[in-house]
C-alpha cells in the first residue's frame, strides 16, 4: 500500500495534533479545516485550532472484513467522535480493554495508522482511546 510523501506531509499537523479551525465570527469549529465557514460565508474569520483530543463516542462499528491496508488490525473499531469543542470526527477506537459504548468518553493517542509494505512511509496519526 503506497503512501504518497506529499499527501502524508500536507496532513501531518492535522493527523498528529488534531488541528482544525474555528470561525471567530460564530465560534463554530471544524475538523478537518474548512476554507469558508458554513454559517458566515464570505464573512468567515477562520483560525487554526488544536483540539484537546477529548470527546464522546456518538456511534461506532466493528470492522470484521478490512481493506488491505488494515489487514493486520481486523477486527477493529471505527467510531464517530463528538469532540468537546464541537466537531464530529471519524477515527479508529483502540482496544485498551475498556468498554466501547455510545456516550463513552475518549481521548486521542498517537499510533501507526495502517500496515505498510516494507519500503513505504509510515503513516502516524491520532486514534481514540476509551477512558
Amino acid at each position: 500500500m503506497d503512501v504518497a510523501p506529499a499527501s502524508l506531509w500536507r496532513k501531518i499537523n492535522t493527523r498528529y495534533n488534531l488541528v482544525g479551525n474555528t470561525c471567530k465570527n460564530c465560534n463554530t469549529s471544524y475538523f478537518p479545516q474548512r476554507v469558508v465557514c458554513r454559517n458566515c460565508g464570505r464573512k468567515s474569520k477562520l483560525e487554526e485550532r488544536k483540539f484537546s483530543g477529548n470527546g464522546t463516542i456518538f456511534s461506532f462499528t466493528r470492522i470484521m472484513v478490512p481493506p488491505d491496508a488494515f489487514r493486520e488490525d481486523a477486527p477493529y473499531t471505527i467510531g464517530l467522535i463528538k469532540l468537546d469543542e464541537g466537531p464530529m470526527v471519524e477515527g479508529h477506537i483502540i482496544d485498551n480493554c475498556a468498554e466501547i459504548k455510545i456516550g463513552g468518553k475518549v481521548k486521542t493517542v498517537f499510533r501507526r495508522m495502517q500496515t505498510e509494505d516494507k519500503e513505504d512511509l509510515i503513516r502516524y496519526q491520532y486514534k481514540f482511546e476509551p477512558l
Binding site: 488490525d73 499510533r111 486514534k127
Partner: peptide, 13 residues
C-alpha cells in the same frame, strides 16, 4: 507493544 505501536508512538506518548 500493541500492533500499531512502535518506538516513535511510545516516544510521542
Amino acid at each position: 507493544q500493541d500492533k500499531d505501536e512502535d518506538a516513535a508512538t511510545i516516544a510521542v506518548q
